[in-house]
């Protein structure tokens, strides 16, 4: 029974829904069955966002059970840790090299309810201590390199495609990117995708 479970997470407004749409299109193009479950509603209000994506003939439920995700793709490192219980033992976490302090954390810091901010490295360590294979991607710098600062999500998509190269052809991903992003942004998004894929390999 071959199935692939992917958790996509991040902060509202980072382009997670577009990312899940591209993966869905990829599966359609590749002839794979796909189901996803997403949470809308507070997505634009800087809250935590999660999308469940499930690929394979046997999948029915829109939600991945805890401990069964093959990959977690996170646009922000704290969110990868927040949803780490979805990861299967030895699964892969592809995280953006980026930490965004929630406004509530800043408030607590100023009110001296906490002594200091949580730091990127300690979040990363906590993820690693969960028997996760961690791949860090500096999506912002790669997106800038591709000349499309908003394509951080597509950079991470590239990295995800490299991690799934055994099951879904890279070309399906590229076709889906071309179909989904606005015409004038295709070239830069393809570049962003490729840079992300390279980052996973290296």
């Amino acid at each position: 029974m071959k199935q692939t479970n992917i958790i996509l997470c991040g902060i509202g407004g980072e382009g997670l829904v577009l990312l899940s749409n591209i993966i869905g299109e990829t599966c359609r193009i590749a002839g794979e069955n796909v189901i996803s479950g997403e949470m809308h509603g507070l997505a634009q209000r800087s809250g935590s966002v999660i999308v469940h994506m499930r690929i394979g003939d046997e999948v029915l439920s829109p939600l991945i059970p805890p401990g069964e995700a093959d990959v977690i793709v996170s646009l922000e490192v704290m969110e990868a840790l927040r949803y780490i219980h979805y990861l299967k033992p030895g699964g892969t976490v592809i995280t953006n090299k980026r930490l965004v302090h929630p406004p509530g954390e800043t408030l607590d810091l100023v009110l001296r309810k906490i002594e200091r901010y949580v730091e990127y490295e300690e979040v990363l360590e906590a993820i690693k201590s969960n028997d996760a294979n961690v791949v860090e991607v500096n999506a912002l710098s790669l997106a800038k390199k591709a000349d499309e600062v908003r394509a951080q999500n597509v950079v991470l998509l590239g990295a995800l495609s490299a991690s799934l190269s055994g099951s879904i052809p890279m070309k399906s991903f590229l076709d889906a990117v071309e179909e989904t992003v606005p015409k004038k942004a295709v070239e830069s998004n393809v570049k962003a995708f490729e840079l992300g894929a390279d980052a996973y390999e290296s």
Partner: peptide, 11 residues
């Protein structure tokens, strides 16, 4: 392991 995380509430 996630206990170090601050909540990310909608604002």
């Amino acid at each position: 392991h996630g206990e170090i995380l601050p909540q990310r509430l909608p604002v």
